[in-house]
């Protein structure tokens, strides 16, 4: 099996089989990660460039390590210190990277659709590491990987996602991915942070955190950005925590063996109580490890695609 597209732009475009294939490959990659010498030749002779127009710690490092563990040449472009700061367009920057022989370009940008535009203009495979509020497919893949690792499958599971749904690209990718794998996705958050007509995309929307949490198998908190408060979307972090914060008491509404996820970075005492973050249901640290495994799988599958097809 090979992935249909040269790029990974979003989970909206992947089939159920493709997602499962990526998750299966990631399982093998995790074995490599857990071994003493984290080095394989899978990506020898390949180059991976990260092009981040937005700040990132974990995603960027995760991609870079994934590439290096598999012997690829990896390089970062720091947008602030590059030609971008001199006014170069995205397409021109992309073509320049392409002409230097990049096999994969990993891009993050504050505007939705940017990776799609880049992908149309370069030969390299483009991986979307987050585009505006649209998608963050590798985050959702690592979330799904984490759930599947613990629960065996997503089929029939109830997943409750709580927080700023409107601005979250993590939610959108998870909605596409998890529903394709048969989960029931429920969301809850302040009504000012729920996008319009979300119920029409096949998820259940609740106004209270309690309703969303009842009998959930997976509970995911989302980062709340303080800037949203200034724009009048909610009155205070304190009130947010009071009505939507995930603490031990609320978590009791979910199933006994429910898993707690968060894409990070976490605001302790805002989205989740410290007790929940550090508690035994929390998989937040494992998510980070799984992120590397999932990205290794993707880099491998996308670059392998070239060899299988014998062309670019």
């Amino acid at each position: 099996m090979t992935l249909k597209s040269k790029d990974l732009l979003g989970l909206k475009d992947l089939t159920e089989e493709e997602i499962e294939y990526i998750l299966r490959t990631a399982k093998t990659m995790k074995l490599i990660l857990e071994s003493k010498n984290k080095k394989t030749p899978h990506l020898q002779g390949k180059s991976v460039i990260t092009l981040f127009y937005e700040n990132s710690t974990r995603t960027r490092l995760s991609f870079e390590l994934a590439a290096k563990y598999m012997s690829a040449s990896a390089a970062n472009i720091s947008v602030a210190a590059s030609s971008v700061a001199k006014g170069e367009t995205l397409i021109d920057t992309g073509k320049t990277i392409d002409m230097m022989g990049a096999d994969v370009i990993v891009i993050r940008h504050s505007m939705a659709g940017t990776p799609h535009l880049l992908a149309k203009n370069v030969k390299a495979s483009v991986i979307n590491a987050g585009d505006g509020m649209n998608e963050h497919p590798t985050q959702a893949l690592l979330d799904m990987f984490t759930v599947v690792e613990k629960k065996g499958s997503l089929k029939g599971l109830k997943v409750a996602i709580i927080g700023d749904i409107y601005h979250s690209r993590v939610v959108r990718s998870n909605i596409w991915g998890m529903t394709k794998l048969g989960a029931e996705v429920c969301v809850a958050g302040p009504t000012t942070l729920i996008p319009r007509e979300l119920d029409k995309v096949g998820v259940k929307v609740f106004n209270t955190v309690q309703e969303a949490l009842i009998d959930a198998d997976v509970v995911m908190g989302l980062r709340i950005q303080k800037e949203r408060q200034k724009k009048g979307l909610f009155p205070s972090l304190r009130e947010y925590y009071r009505f939507f914060g995930l603490d031990d008491k609320r978590l009791k509404l979910a199933k006994e063996d429910a898993l707690v996820l968060h894409p990070g970075p976490v605001n302790r005492g805002v989205e989740l109580s410290s007790a929940v973050i550090d508690g035994d249901k929390s998989l937040i640290n494992e998510q980070v490890t799984n992120g590397v495994a999932v990205r290794m799988a993707l880099l491998y599958l996308l670059t392998r695609r070239d060899n299988v097809e014998g062309s670019n």
Binding site: A112, D131, M133, N134, R172, P195, R196
Partner: peptide, 13 residues
């Protein structure tokens, strides 16, 4: 336009 399509694409409506 704010609605189904802006929600799907994560674009500000």
């Amino acid at each position: 336009n704010e609605g189904y399509w802006s929600t799907i694409m994560g674009l500000k409506g």
